[in-house]
Design a protein around this nucleic acid. Sequence first.
DNA 1: GATGAATGAGACTTCATTCAT
DNA 2: GATGAATGAAGTCTCATTCAT
Lengths: 194, 194, 194, 194
Amino acid sequence: MTTASTPKGERRKHALIEAAAALLIEGGFDAVRHRAVAERAELPLASTTYYFDSIDDLIVEALEFHGRAELARGRAVLEDMDACPKEPDALVELVLDQLLGPRARENDAEAILLRYERLVATARRPYLRPLTLELGADLRALLMDTFARSNATVDEARLEQLIALVDGAVVNALIEVNPDPRAAARRMLLDALA
Amino acid sequence: MTTASTPKGERRKHALIEAAAALLIEGGFDAVRHRAVAERAELPLASTTYYFDSIDDLIVEALEFHGRAELARGRAVLEDMDACPKEPDALVELVLDQLLGPRARENDAEAILLRYERLVATARRPYLRPLTLELGADLRALLMDTFARSNATVDEARLEQLIALVDGAVVNALIEVNPDPRAAARRMLLDALA
Amino acid sequence: MTTASTPKGERRKHALIEAAAALLIEGGFDAVRHRAVAERAELPLASTTYYFDSIDDLIVEALEFHGRAELARGRAVLEDMDACPKEPDALVELVLDQLLGPRARENDAEAILLRYERLVATARRPYLRPLTLELGADLRALLMDTFARSNATVDEARLEQLIALVDGAVVNALIEVNPDPRAAARRMLLDALA
Amino acid sequence: MTTASTPKGERRKHALIEAAAALLIEGGFDAVRHRAVAERAELPLASTTYYFDSIDDLIVEALEFHGRAELARGRAVLEDMDACPKEPDALVELVLDQLLGPRARENDAEAILLRYERLVATARRPYLRPLTLELGADLRALLMDTFARSNATVDEARLEQLIALVDGAVVNALIEVNPDPRAAARRMLLDALA
DNA sequence: GATGAATGAGACTTCATTCAT
DNA sequence: GATGAATGAAGTCTCATTCAT
């Protein structure tokens, strides 16, 4: 293992992960290069190969960091509520927060994109599968919890349907000139939950 | 000019496009390199820059070739039918043929993947947008035709919903160990059309 | 010989030469490429190798065309005059017209540059020597004529001195941000002829 | 960082600069290629891009190295003298040493050429301007010093005149079959200083 | 005579990774 | 433990020139 165990090592490794995640959001997988990550983290170039076995390893960790952070944000939105919304409109916004990230509220297509790039990339990169499956499971658990608290009757099949609706809407919205994937997904969900 | 005009030139250019499309299917965007395309087409390396202004130009043409071929195959399936299916089961298979390609019948995840890679890639590569929008419009027209012939009442909003359902199901199925995206999409469609 | 002898051939060859000369002025030696010349002349790419043995051959002919045209312009200025200037100021302008080209009057550094690029390039390219020597001799003859008509006593050595003064001034002026080589040369000449 | 900081790194970087300078002298700007420089320095090809941001950057550094070395040689000639020459003949040789380099004594046109190639090249390559202006200023300072020590009364305008005389003579001498630019410049200077 | 087609050679540059210190 | 230095492999692209038609 080349993994650091000192507090300082942990801190630097994390700085690299955050830098990689930022690059991932801004430029996709192709933007994650040793040099770019090191420069963004203001750390030496070689630190990127010192703390990570390969560039793919770094990408995986950055994706995990980003994915868990999004999940945490989604969960936080839920926990911060006094009572769970019972009317469709508010429930839909909550579910969108959890599926696309609360940051997607201000129509930030970039913030949404990475989830779909990860999903599609996993098809060709088996080493992404464990992470993508786990994040998917966690997301589903969160959504189930959300629906339960909102007194909405949603079983697993229904959940998959709602997720498919959102993901399909987003993937098709992403190609527009001024994409508003959240609006597209909202329409689908409102219709389905009506 | 870098465009071929003689029959032989056309043939060579097309050989390069086919080679690039094959690489696209097998290895995604990253697999399309001048060298790889030329070797696969058994043509000189420089022919790739002679017939195409840039590697991105070649990718676009390969994507267009693949997309139109898929569309043609989907349309062919429709035209080859004596009568359009009226029962949901058969109609669903037909729609899946058109959305995922008839080749996807034998659970060939690779053949399905490229459509989603193209969709997601378009978000970061504006030069793909015209093609992706056009292929999307053609696909929608084909599906509308199909539903009409099957006496199914499907307006535009409903069509978008069905497409989202399929695309979302596929994108989420693609990450499994033994992915069967067509089965996942089938389930969604059957449920929705029931 | 691949030289054309038909009128049409002559015309096309000349169009290529003019195109090459224009590129030479605009971008220097490096700007003269087969493709660039052909496109500028609106002629087929292969016509550049058909009418010229090599790119260097084309450059030589373009330089000759440009050099002779400049000389002709310089001579024309002289011939167009009713009487030759006797006062230094006007004489200097006339000499500058002949050494730098009348077009250099409006401080067009680009129009002046090519003469010096040719001079310096000749040091490394022996095939340019005959042309450069010949153009130099013609220029000197023209200047001698000019001084004679102006009743200025200028022998060969004195002429070389005046030419050196101008060329040296220009070469050193060319590197400024807003070069005004003609002004620099004018100063030198006025001083020397005073 | 692409800049070397260790002694060994400095040494390698310098070896590349020297190799590039040698190529510059032997073959001009066009001779400076990554491959040629690396081979001449007996270093790996990639070292040329490791130590320099671009080939132009390498050219600039090589020109600077060469220009400063010439200046240093010119200054050394001055400092090595017991007393500064008072008679024109010796003074002219000294000035020629400083303008053309002492190596130009043995009629080595190649050693002189680069200064004029740099001057003329600067007209089309703005990134050379800072260097060319600086070397020009240093050269003028050195010449002023030289004239002062020789008790010759030379103000700025007069200095420019003498420089122009030399540079113009050289540029016109360079095109001869057996060029002797130093002799041509000498004649001009002797005449002017007489 | 003309030219569209074609290509070998080589240019510049990027990058993941290795390794000595 | 850390990292500056280094490089082999490979990428994209340009271009003068050849040649079959």
